[in-house]
């Protein structure tokens, strides 16, 4: 019997979902032979309340009112996977956790409207138990296929927990630091295959940090080798890893 999967989205740009409908290639279509998609907001309209084998959740948990919906999903699903940076770590949404005035900056005079009320942006694991995370902004389709493939066989997926440097070196990419630039690869979780440094762009740690990031050394290296000012070096990794940093806002 095909494995029943469903997709749900919370606070995010829905880019990961689009990314998925964009797959359109043989790999993804072949995967569809093994799964039955019962709910997918971007691509189909029917919705179910039936049990689900795997629930994929996209987007961060940033409004208390979402908690109930998340709990319902958890109830129905045997496996919950947070996919994409927002769901996995709060992602870029968590930038606002450190800014008091973001509403005014973003919405101007409408900023006091009640539906714009939100709390800190966090990964969905702040509300419910998450079994696995597929990191990245957007998530990596190869990793997605691999994780699903492992789950189809009842095998716990292998999620890398080492820095992006490993992949850069294996690709023989010239290190950003050797080109007078900076990078966050030393603390960023690998698994993406390090495409950004290969294209000449520093890693922004869109997959969040590894489990044991050396934040202190990062700050030092960003200043001494990366040429960043002390101020920039200190906050540089907030873009995607706000909730992984030791100064993450908890509530």
């Amino acid at each position: 019997m095909a494995v029943r999967v469903a997709y749900f989205d919370f606070t995010c740009c829905e880019g990961c979902q689009i990314e998925m409908t964009n797959f359109g290639d043989a790999a993804f279509l072949e995967l569809l032979n093994h799964v039955e998609v019962v709910e997918f907001r971007e691509a189909m309209s029917e919705k179910t309340t039936e049990p689900i084998d795997i629930a994929f959740i996209e987007g961060s948990f940033s409004r208390e009112s979402d908690r109930k919906r998340l709990e319902e999903i958890r109830e129905r699903a045997s496996i919950v996977i947070a996919y994409g940076a927002c769901a996995a770590t709060g992602g870029i949404n968590a930038l606002k956790n450190h800014q008091g005035d973001y509403k005014k900056a973003v919405y101007g005079k409408d900023s006091e409207m009640p539906h714009l009320d939100s709390m800190c942006a966090r990964g969905v694991d702040a509300a419910i138990k998450v079994d696995y995370k597929i990191h990245g902004c957007p998530m990596d389709k190869n990793e997605f296929v691999r994780v699903v493939s492992h789950l189809l066989h009842g095998k716990e997926p292998v999620i890398p927990d080492y820095p992006v440097c490993v992949e850069c070196k294996q690709n023989e990419t010239v290190c950003r630091y050797q080109l007078g630039d900076h990078c966050l690869g030393q603390v960023a979780r690998a698994g993406c295959g390090a495409p950004c440094p290969a294209d000449g762009i520093p890693c922004e740690a869109c997959r969040g940090f590894v489990s044991n990031p050396n934040e202190e050394a990062l700050e030092k290296v960003l200043i001494e080798n990366g040429g960043l000012s002390a101020e920039r070096a200190k906050y540089k990794s907030r873009m995607f890893a706000a909730n992984h940093r030791s100064d993450a806002v908890k509530e």
Partner: peptide, 11 residues
């Protein structure tokens, strides 16, 4: 102390 455990030195 400043090691990132990045394994670059190995690779």
């Amino acid at each position: 102390k400043d090691c990132f455990s990045c394994g670059s030195c190995n690779i």
